[in-house]
Amino acid sequence: MTTPTPSSPASPLLRAEGLHVTYPGRRGEASARAVDGVDLDIRPGEIVALVGESGCGKTTLARSLLGLVSPTGGRVVFDGRPLDYTSRALKAYRRRVQLILQDPSGSLNPRHTVYDAVAEGLRIHGYGGDEQAAVAGALSRAGLRPPERFFLRYPHELSGGQRQRVVIAGALVLEPELLVADEPVASLDASVRGEILALLLRLRDELGLSALVVTHDLGLAWNIADRVAVMYLGRIVETGEVEQVLTAPRHPYTQALLSVLPEAPGDPIVLTGEPPDPSRIPSGCRFHARCQVLAGGEAERAGVASRCRTEDPGILDGGGEAQVACHYAATNSTSNPSELAR
């Protein structure tokens, strides 16, 4: 089977359509809009990186795509069908879509052997085949060879990288079509991070897996993703092919995130203030209160400052083309991105 390339016209395997997730406020407070209108496609064989600072809503979005959180608006579509939230349908769905968490120590029961940890999903889903062969195959694909050496080991006997490979094997044993990886290497040493990222890429190439990788690390996105979606305050503000977005960022928020990478040219862009409360999202562009382009006067000179403060740029389409939710970027599409960040 040929794995579709990111640029192929394959229909999305997973799609978020106008997704909203709202949490009720306490004691009469306004509801918190954790996810505030998101369209996002993930095609077969594609790795999409969802990036943004802590609290932007990316983990809530990932949980809603997994069916762990029911949306308050919009819908999730998988393989052409809207997600059904009945227990039986979700069980079948989660066999095809698996979650990989950032902390392998917290994901593994310390009292379970590696064999039991990997076999757990098979037992939950009533696997009728050769369990031992399936577990051995998953461990081998995750890079733990020979797999039989690991069957009777416990998590505390493994390194951090080995524990993460066990978590990945536990996801692979069900032969899913999509992995959702939430900060999959955040808790690992730098020397092991590259190995796990290389493993995820190899699994994509060999098995045709799709993946959504949730991260705050744009360097990780550069190394693993085909496409990147940058999220701020519950909404995707810039998206496109990873090389295009990370070498020529158009949204001031993306520029600020990139500016603090060690290899970034020039001085880091220091954003003022903290991200707004999701229960009190500002009018206009939700980034305008912290925007260095607006604060520096460039938006005023371009004649869009008033729109930045009062007019919502809208929800980006979930497809693969480059898009940005920024009034200034829209009027300066030919500008040098490094100049926009000054």
Rank of each mutant, 00 (worst) to 15 (best):
M1L: 08
S8K: 00
R15S: 15
E17T: 14
H20W: 13
T22C: 06
P24S: 10
G25K: 06
S31N: 13
A34Q: 03
D36A: 15
G37A: 07
D41Q: 14
P44D: 11
G52L: 11
G52K: 12
G55I: 13
S64N: 08
L66R: 05
P71K: 02
F78N: 01
F78P: 01
F78L: 02
Y85F: 15
T86M: 02
R88N: 03
K91I: 00
Q102G: 01
D103A: 03
S105Q: 10
G106A: 14
S107K: 02
L108K: 06
P110Y: 08
P110T: 11
V114T: 13
V114E: 07
Y115F: 15
D116G: 00
V118N: 13
A119E: 11
I124Y: 08
A133E: 14
A134I: 05
E148W: 07
R153A: 10
G160D: 03
G161V: 08
V166W: 12
V166P: 10
I168N: 06
A169F: 12
A169V: 11
E177M: 07
V180S: 08
S191F: 03
E195L: 13
L201Q: 15
R202C: 07
R204L: 06
L207D: 09
L207V: 11
V213Y: 06
T215L: 07
H216P: 04
N223V: 02
I224T: 05
I224P: 08
D226W: 05
M231G: 09
G234R: 12
V237M: 04
E238I: 11
E238A: 11
T239S: 15
G240T: 13
L246Q: 04
P249I: 13
H251T: 10
P262S: 07
G266K: 06
G266N: 05
E274R: 15
D277N: 15
C285I: 08
A305Q: 04
C308D: 13
C308F: 11
D312K: 02
D317F: 00
G319P: 07
V324R: 11
V324F: 08
C326L: 12
H327C: 09
A329L: 09
N332V: 00
S333C: 00
S338E: 15
S338Y: 14
